[in-house]
Design a binder for these strands. Structure first.
Length: 448
RNA sequence: GCGGGCGUAGCUCAGGCGGUUAGAGCACCAGAUUGUGGAUCUGGGGGUCGUGGGUUCAAGUCCCAUCGCUCGCCCCA
């Protein structure tokens, strides 16, 4: 591998590490603000834990170790341990559990937090799959049992969040791990965890593929597989899902509890427009730690695009870290995934190239001090102001303002004590104005 | 990790039957325009044709390798 590379190589994009120009970053920032507002309206507090965790904390979740970016110094010392000690987090759930465990005496429970942070994954990038991406999580964790009501509140918050950023129509499919585990156990399937992992591939592998895997990997017979697939075929927006699952005739206490939970959640969500929330017993989610309700959301318009929100309930995330159990529930929005897709589809109107409200031009011959003080005065009054730092021909200065979409242009006097003028970029109307008193009349005005 | 496609200016690409100093549009800089804008015109800067090797009198062009990007598969937060 070339160490230096050509200058061309140094400029090339790095696969899976997206970058945006200012007018799109402006939209992304706007999204973050709106998401914060939604989460905070439900009482979720923001935290920003460190981006690195001990590798063993990250691995607690499963054997996805190949996806973890390890950190280390470029030039290691001779005595450094060969294995990476720290890795960049690849999601926020388990790291959040570590944070909660480490700060138990300082947090109040139930602890409700949101995190909007970068995460890193060393996978092969594809559409909707990045190696560096913004993830947006909300979770509730408690030291005692969390009421089932949270299972219904979390997707409602997520729905509001997606609406706030204008993500377009989203379909959220909901299932319950207890239903699957209870059903499988009732059928006599021993390895329910692996059965769930395999069934989770239904949308990609199809019923035949999943059946073959269940047979090959778990040695299940055709009749058992047939009933498992029959369960997975059940979906619908109302309580009939529960009845149809019961009608399959498998007896299990866990299954009953799961069906009760699912029925409650669906009943609660029935207040939303039909089709937004659908019970779907083919949804399993690959992750090992889920133990109850699970969610998976997709764009209604792009059904082949990967999951844009996912989450669910877990009985315990901190058990391996501290000597107690801590149940929780949460959901995560793949912000970069949503954003990049909507950009690619042309559904995002770019923002402005700069936040500037007013450009103070350098009037020919005006003392620099006059220009600067004019800009300062306007800035003190709350406007976002930049000054043109060159006594250059006006053409160039005005062109600069129009390229950046700056709505107001301010003309300071050529000599101290002279008259100021301000011009509306859109209407090109120019009038005398006092920097100490002027307020924009109507649009474009300040960013709304 | 596996398979397909593609690497030519900062960006998007043309050239691609090997043949003198490699092109366009956009972007950038300057001027036309002696201080009131998005246009137009003129000029300018900018390339070891991803990298290494091979074939040839001659390689951006053909062959091999390699790296990167990209799409799909595997995997899956």
């Amino acid at each position: 591998m070339s160490r230096t590379g050509t200058s061309k190589e140094r400029l090339r994009p790095i696969s899976g590490f997206p970058e945006w120009t200012p007018e799109y970053r402006a939209v992304e920032l706007e999204w973050i603000d709106r998401l914060r507002a939604v989460f905070e309206s439900y009482g979720f507090a923001s935290i920003e834990p460190r981006s690195v965790e001990p590798v063993e904390v990250l691995l607690k979740q499963g054997d996805t170790d190949k996806e973890i970016y390890a950190i280390g110094r470029l030039a290691a010392d001779p005595g450094d341990r060969p294995e990476p000690a720290y890795g960049l987090h690849y999601d926020m759930t388990v790291p959040m559990a570590r944070y909660v465990a480490a700060n138990l005496n300082r947090l109040s429970f139930p602890f409700k937090r949101y995190q909007i942070q970068k995460a890193w994954r060393g996978e092969r990038p594809q559409e909707g799959r990045f190696r560096e991406f913004l993830q947006c999580d909300i979770d509730v964790v408690d030291t005692r049992e969390l009421p089932l009501h949270f299972d219904a509140e979390i997707p409602a918050i997520m729905r509001e969040a997606m609406a706030a950023i204008g993500a377009g129509p989203v379909v959220t499919r909901i299932s319950n791990r207890k239903v699957l585990e209870g059903f499988y156990a009732g059928l006599g399937v021993a390895d329910t965890a692996n059965a769930i992992r395999i069934v989770d591939k239904l949308d990609k592998a199809g019923p035949d593929g999943v059946g073959a895997m269940l047979s090959a990997e778990l040695g299940l017979d055709g009749a058992t597989i047939g009933r498992m697939l029959a369960l997975a075929e059940i979906s619908g927006a109302d309580a009939s899902v529960v009845e149809r699952a019961r009608a399959l005739g498998v007896e299990s206490e866990l299954l009953e509890r799961g069906l009760d939970e699912l029925g409650f959640v669906m009943a609660e969500l029935s207040r939303f427009p039909e089709g937004e929330f659908v019970a779907d017993l083919s949804i399993a989610r690959g992750l090992a730690y889920y133990t109850g309700t699970v969610y998976e959301a997709k764009f209604a318009d792009f059904p082949d695009f990967p999951t844009i929100c996912g989450g669910g309930r877990y009985d315990d995330l901190v058990g391996g870290l501290i000597a107690r159990r801590m149940p929780g529930i949460g959901i995560s929005i793949g912000l970069t995934r949503v954003f990049a897709k909507l950009v690619a589809e042309g559904r995002i109107a770019p923002g402005r190239k700069a936040p500037t409200d007013i450009l103070v031009v350098h009037t020919r011959g005006a003392p620099y001090r006059t220009v600067r003080e004019t800009a300062d005065a306007l800035r003190r009054r709350g406007f976002r102001v930049e000054q043109y730092h060159e006594d250059r021909k006006l053409n160039a200065q005005l062109k600069y303002a129009s390229e950046k979409g700056i709505p107001w242009i301010w003309f300071p006097p050529a000599e101290e004590g002279g008259r100021h003028e301000v011009k509306n970029s859109e209407t090109r109307e120019q009038v005398p104005a006092d920097p100490a008193a002027w307020t924009p009349a109507g649009p474009p005005g300040r960013e709304s």
